[in-house]
Amino acid sequence: MTHTTPASATTAYDLAPESAWRTSSYSNDGSGNCVSVAHLPTTVAVRDSKQPAGPAFQISPTAFTTFIGFAKDTRI
């Protein structure tokens, strides 16, 4: 499947340089369901690890912490 990014979408490289992005060591489970995050001054940027130059979004650090807690608790 080929994914395209709409011209108006924010891309990962609009938010942070490649060196800022991190992928969890737990992401290597073979499922292909991986995200990378970049901790910015006031937000956390999130992108699909398989599409590093693709679309990305930002959330508050509080929302990110809540998401991580949910993911750990439900093993998603």
Rank of each mutant, 00 (worst) to 15 (best):
Q51G: 02
G54T: 00
M1C: 04
W21I: 07
V37I: 15
T11E: 04
K50D: 07
A16I: 04
D29F: 00
N33P: 06
V37M: 06
S19P: 05
D73T: 09
T65Y: 07
F70C: 12
D48N: 12
A12P: 00
S25W: 08
M1Y: 11
F57W: 13
T10W: 07
S19T: 12
L40Y: 00
C34G: 11
T11N: 03
F70H: 12
T2D: 06
F64R: 08
C34M: 03
V37F: 08
R47Q: 12
A71V: 13
D14Y: 01
P52H: 03
L15G: 02
T42E: 07
Y26E: 13
A63L: 07
S49P: 13
Y13L: 13
P55I: 08
A45L: 03
P41T: 08
T11K: 10
F70M: 09
Q51T: 09
T62W: 00
C34S: 14
L15E: 00
A20V: 04
A7E: 14
Q58E: 15
T65I: 12
P61M: 02
G30P: 06
P52Q: 06
I76A: 14
H3G: 03
A38Q: 06
V37P: 10
S8Y: 14
R75H: 12
S8K: 04
C34I: 01
W21L: 09
I68F: 13
R47H: 10
V44W: 09
P41H: 07
P41C: 06
P41N: 14
L40I: 05
T2Q: 13
T42V: 14
T42S: 15
A9M: 14
R75Y: 10
I59K: 11
E18V: 09
A16M: 09
Q51N: 11
Y13I: 04
F67G: 04
W21A: 03
T23S: 09
A53D: 13
V46P: 11
P41F: 09
I76T: 15
F57M: 15
D14F: 02
D14L: 03
T4E: 10
G69S: 05
Y13F: 09
T43P: 10
A12R: 03
A9C: 01
A38E: 08
T11D: 06
A38Y: 09
V44P: 12
A56L: 02
K72E: 07
G54F: 00
Q51F: 10
C34D: 00
D48Y: 04
D14K: 05
T42Y: 01
A71W: 04
T74M: 11
P6W: 01
T66E: 06
